[in-house]
């Protein structure tokens, strides 16, 4: 026995196991943080602001000049897609306004060549989500509720996460966001008493968004 001595661990080795609980708890906390926030649209999608082919400013057109959203996004009340305006819509005014600006020159080029402008899409949901603009707009969900104050954005960016949790939140409690249908495109509108108004609107208009899978996924 004497010739084979066991290995004697140093005294500080007894302290190593004390590290196990913090490492374990830290690991779990990290996993939840990564799933819940870091890898979620809240973190990776909010604030997405691509450079557009033309430096078009919503702040100028919708904000300062007060053009209604529906002037360009014509289909928003009638169809699933709000639709982007064709070059013709722009040219209604820009045939005569600021024709010498370099940005408007790009517009004229598109018009002359009969080539649509390649706008970069900002707010998007996956293809397996059957989102319908008309359904929401006609129920009294304001543009600003999902898109933010676009009338103050020089370059459009994504305001809300557009994650499923975010959709579901409103589908559960639509009264938090409902407004009169004629105020839908009013970006600056704020309800005097959202709680009371929301409840009334929900009741009067039979708003029941539903939470079944097939409401959004078909």
């Amino acid at each position: 026995m004497t010739e084979n001595q066991p290995f004697i661990f140093p005294k500080w080795a007894n302290l190593i196991p004390l590290l196990i609980p913090p490492i374990l708890l830290g690991g779990i906390a990290t996993a939840v943080f990564v799933m819940w926030y870091w890898a979620s649209p809240k973190h990776i999608e909010v604030g997405y602001q691509p450079t557009q082919p033309i430096a078009y400013s919503h702040a100028l057109h919708a904000g300062e000049l007060g053009i209604d959203c529906r002037y360009c996004h014509t289909n928003v009340e009638r169809g699933a897609k709000a639709t982007l305006p064709s070059t013709d819509t722009c040219m209604n005014c820009h045939k005569v306004i600021k024709t010498e600006s370099p940005e408007i020159k790009k517009l004229q080029k598109s018009w002359k060549n009969n080539q649509p402008i390649q706008w970069v899409r900002v707010n998007a949901v996956p293809d397996y989500v059957y989102f319908d603009h008309s359904r929401h707009v006609n129920s009294g969900i304001g543009c600003a509720t999902c898109h933010g104050r676009v009338d103050k954005m020089k370059t459009v960016h994504q305001k809300e996460p557009l994650s499923m949790a975010w959709c579901v939140d409103c589908h559960k409690t639509p009264e938090k966001h409902l407004r009169p249908v004629d105020k839908v495109t009013d970006m600056a509108w704020v309800a005097p008493d959202q709680k009371k108004l929301g409840a009334t609107l929900k009741k009067d208009h039979y708003i029941d968004p539903g939470l079944d899978c097939s409401v959004c996924h078909r």
Binding site: M1, I8, F9, P10
Partner: peptide
């Protein structure tokens, strides 16, 4: 436990 160091381990037997 785990207690890797313990004085008795120093005794060969």
């Amino acid at each position: 436990l785990p207690q890797l160091y313990y004085s008795l381990f120093k005794v060969g037997r």
